[in-house]
Amino acid sequence: MAKVSMTVNGKAASGEVEGRTLLSSFLRDTLGLTGTHVGCDTSQCGACVVHVDGKAVKSCTMLAQEADGSDVATIEGQANADGSLNVIQQAFQDHHGLQCGFCTPGMVMSAAALLKDNPKPTEAEIREYLEGNLCRCTGYHNIIKAILAASGQDVSAIAAE
């Protein structure tokens, strides 16, 4: 066992891990941050996306010890300081960008990473960026719409589905 320490959602966090402990396991099992979901566990579905030092990664395909000393952001840290939903989360609610909600933590974290680098993405850019995030409910349409809306772009012309 080895000790890892990192900043998670702005707070210091540490724990004992094995060599094989995944970042997703450390977040969920050690820190109790179960908002990060493990869907496929084969780095395809993206439900486990978190940010490590500002970059979106699949936490089920990164060892916890690789994140030692890093700044990690998860879905639990996304809400505004007063507890209200942030602009991306609110847009997902407003535009019905989720149904069962299982993929949503990863979708929101990927959307946040996209909008940080590209504040006004086109629909095509959003669709390409979400290649690694699978949703089995929505057909993606309203997810795309929510992210367009969260970026401050007019989505009134896009039909509700």
Binding site: V57, K58, E131, G132
Partner: peptide, 9 residues
């Protein structure tokens, strides 16, 4: 290559 999260690692 892959998707954005894969490209970051």
């Amino acid at each position: 290559i892959g998707d954005p999260a894969v490209r970051n690692r």
